[in-house]
Structure formats: C-alpha cells, structure tokens
Design a protein around this nucleic acid. Sequence first.
DNA 1: TGTTCAATCTTTACATTGTAAAGTTAATAT
DNA 2: ATATTAACTTTACAATGTAAAGATTGAACA
Lengths: 193, 193
Amino acid sequence: MSDSYHHGNLKQALIDAGVKIINESGESGLSLRKAAALCNVSHAAPYAHFKDKEELIEEIKKNVTGQFMEELQNAVREASDAESALISMGRRYVLFFLHNPDYFKFLFGSQNIVAHFRTDKEYEEDYPPFKLLKEIYINFLREKNIKKKKNEQELDLLKLWSSAHGLAAIACMSKVKLSCDWKKAIEGDILLK
Amino acid sequence: MSDSYHHGNLKQALIDAGVKIINESGESGLSLRKAAALCNVSHAAPYAHFKDKEELIEEIKKNVTGQFMEELQNAVREASDAESALISMGRRYVLFFLHNPDYFKFLFGSQNIVAHFRTDKEYEEDYPPFKLLKEIYINFLREKNIKKKKNEQELDLLKLWSSAHGLAAIACMSKVKLSCDWKKAIEGDILLK
DNA sequence: TGTTCAATCTTTACATTGTAAAGTTAATAT
DNA sequence: ATATTAACTTTACAATGTAAAGATTGAACA
C-alpha cells in the first residue's frame, strides 16, 4: 500500500487503470504497459497477476459488467412490480450503453462476454445480467398468473434480451441518428411483447 | 498482373487477402504485413494504396458487407411479396452471421460500420442493408395499403432492424446455446411486429 | 533470531507490428 | 529519348506483448 517495492494491491489497481483507460480512449488505447505505468510499476509487473493481456481484459470486463448490473438492479429496486421492472430494465439496458458507448464496444466488441462467466453449464445462466432478467421474468409470470411452457418462456426471454441488446447495439455501434426519438422506442412496445 | 515489379492489382489483392485472413483467424490475426506477405510484396507496399491500416480495414468491411447484401437480396428475390420478403430478410440476416460469426465480430466489433457508408446525411440511409430494408418495408406498406406517419414508420424500421441485429449479436458474440430452437425464434414473431 | 522461500517486482531482451522516409523501378506522357 | 510519377523496396524506429533471469521483501519456520 505504501510506495515500497511491493505495490500492495497491484492487481485491483491494474483493473481500475484499465477501466480508466477504456473510458478515456477505448479499447484500442489499452495496453499492458500503459496500465502498468498508471500504477507506477514496471511494464512486466502485470505478469505476476495476469497470464497475459487477455486475462487482464477479462477482469476489466467483469468489472464493467458489475457496473452494468448495478444499473439493472436499480431498475428492479425502483419498480413496484415485475412487469414495470422488466420495462425499466430494458430502458436502463439501452440507456446505460447509450451513455457509455465505449463500454458496449468493449464488452461486446471482440470477445464474447458471456464466456467469462460460464462455469460448466451449456446455457447462459451464469451471465449475471441474463440471470437477473430470467428471475424477474419468472416473477412476472407468477404475478400475472401466467402459465407457459419452458420453450415459450425461453423464446420470451430471448425476445426481451435481444430487443434491448439490438437497440443498444445500433445506438452504440452505428452512431445512427434516427429522426424518431430513441427514448420513445425504448419506452415503447419494443421492449415488451 | 505478372510477377514483375509492379503487382498490377495490389489494392484488390490486399483486400482479398484481408478477407481471407479474417476468415481464418479473425480480426486479431489481421496485420498489414501479413496481408502484404500473402500478396508477395514488401511490408510497406500497402501504403501506396491505403493511408493506414484503418483504411484497409474499411475496404475489407465494404467487401464483407457486399457479401451480406447479396444474401439479403437473395431473400428479396425469392419472396413472392414484400411481407414474406421482410420475414425472409430477417431470417437471412441472422443466419448469415450465424454461419459467419467472425464476420459479425469484424463488422460490428470495434468500429462502426455505418460510418463507412455515410456521405453527408445525418441518417443511416447510405448503409446499403438498411436502405434495402427500408425499401422493402415501404413496399410492404403499399401492398397492404397501410398508412403510417413517418415517425411510426421509423419506429417500425428500428424494430425490425434491431430485433434481427440483436438476435445475430447474441448468437454470434455470446455463444449462448439456448435450449429453445434458434430457427424457431428467427421464424417466429420476433422478426415481425 | 536468523534462514529460507515464495510472491512480487525490475531489468533486459526479443519478435511482431504500424508507419515514416528515402531510394528504386518501370510505365506513361511529352 | 527523356522526364515524370505511381508503385514498389529497403531501412529505420517506436510501441507493444511477452519471455527469462535477477532483485526485493514479507512471512513461515527452525
């Protein structure tokens, strides 16, 4: 923790430095050496904590996904019921990345994000944002007393997820300025079946 | 064209080499020097045709987008009316990238693709795939004799576009294996309002 | 207490890459 | 035939990822 030979908390410091760099200059501006420099250590120091650059990037992605998750959880907290929570999550999903387009590019740009969270299951259940979506969706079905086959449930989830993700993608990646109001699209029926 | 000092068609050869490299090892495997080597020219030769690496990448993206466009146009050609054309385009949109996930990552991974096609307009009208979608959508409205305000039309277009794109994104970027059938989702009401 | 040891960090070194600069070649215009 | 110029090569350099070997230090242990 002091300015001694050993940094004390270099691993976390490198992750934080990485987040900062990506905020300022996107993923292309991120290098191990710059992150190390920000932490006042030599350029090879990161190798004591990360196997390679990819491993650092994965940690940074987990960190950013954590920020994203907080946003989604806020949506849930604020909502009075599951249905409005679903709508709110969709809106926050898009808005979060609309406000942080570099985060979208970073998370979904090159590598696949879900893989970083998978354990042994075949599905995406270990990816926290999807896990949360599923949970709220189940609540929604219960609250409304709706019965659906598992297959239909998964189609619904895919629909909810991909519509929000698709909007975010187009908003962040293509810099399209549709003359129609983004917020209207976000609020509208797109995010609800 | 011969093996003389001057290559003859180096610019196109470099683009083709780039496409090949991306097919084999993704964007991370692409370097100017490798592309040059594939064309049997020195590593600095590309600079006679491209300002920098980014400019080569843009050309490669235009090439890949051309392949994508052919797919969409096939969908239109095969369809008997505009409505089925829209459905077919959505299916092909997703399937094209499902069969070429590296293309999706490359096109929408880091930079924005639409920008490469924009001229001076504020909107996305210069991006060929969207232009085609819009055209078919207008046909659809005409065939069904539907009147809509411009604002609503744009919301519809955004809906169609983002739902297909969102599905493709999740399919290509996250390697999710939902137990529900992808094709069912593609054929289903997701791609139709 | 002193020694050992493992984790953490530095130094040095090297290959890959993007790119600049200057020189070379050959096709084309005059 | 000569000059011009686009297309290429050669040389050079800085940034980067990463390997290897050595230095430092705190902690476990005798």
